[in-house]
Amino acid sequence: MTAANGAPTLVVDGLQTHFHTRAGLLKAVDGVSFTVEKGRILGLVGESGSGKSVTGFSIIGLVDPPGRVVGGRILFNGEDLAQASESRLRDLRGNRIAMIFQDPMMTLNPVLRIDTQMVEALQAHQKMDRATALARARDALGQVGIPSPDERLKSYPHQFSGGMRQRVAIAIALLNRPDVIIADEPTTALDVTIQAQILFEAQKLCREVGTALIWITHDLSVVAGLADEICVMYAGKVVEQGAVDRVLDHPLHPYTRGLIGSVPSRNRRGQPLTQIPGMAPSPLALPAGCSFRPRCPRADEGCKVPPPMAELAPGRYARCIHPHLEEAAAA
């Protein structure tokens, strides 16, 4: 758990991001805490609507109205971003904290050439003449494995395949050598071979450059191979947290267990997949107490009180009063 490389790069503490909609107050993120250290990879896992993307956008200060960060702290190298001014955030964005988005077809501007889109990212943060910026852009493209980067700089996004576009997006994120990269499902839209390449590159870069990486995904198998730690989110809260191998092998929270059970596996070939019954609750009408209560096989009267996040085993945190401790203990 404790990194040898020193102080945490990013500490998110009790983050709350709420949306004031006409239908009512929507608590998209409600008290999320985690820590990412230099050169480490955190997997942020959850279903659609669990608040994992909003968490990412909150960190970088790009939550669109009616959404707003209403509570908690986002400590980036000790500086609280939740209190930072817009101009300070703009200085950090793309410079110290970069973000990669889900759909590479949509993230690059279709009418601007790649060189334009890369050079502007550099010039937004430091005085740099075009030739130097182009050289940096070319190096970044080479770094993410794009062949003949000189020619590719002059291309438009539609002349790239999906996987290549995502590499370009990653290269843009890398340009200013950020301390933190937030990757919001960056491989979801790609086919598996490309996905594997991108994951490999991401891991390599993290280790080499010492960038902290937050990898947001709904795909447990991606996290299993990539991340050091994992945060499982459900209805705006982190329900389980810990080292990735231990969480995936012996989940404590019934929800994590349900998630893992619904992934097809070779070991359980021919057996029906165990689904989580019911549907994720509407964030406007969350059940009182534990949000997972209506779908949980272990729920009882005690679950009507919101369960606290507790260290149930060394380095293992979960928000549950009926955790699957017996298996973790047996391991």
């Binding site: 790009l62 964005r93 988005f101």
Partner: peptide, 10 residues
């Protein structure tokens, strides 16, 4: 998304 990405570039 390209607008959000552009903003994320700072």
């Amino acid at each position: 998304d390209y607008v959000k990405f552009a903003r994320a570039k700072g």
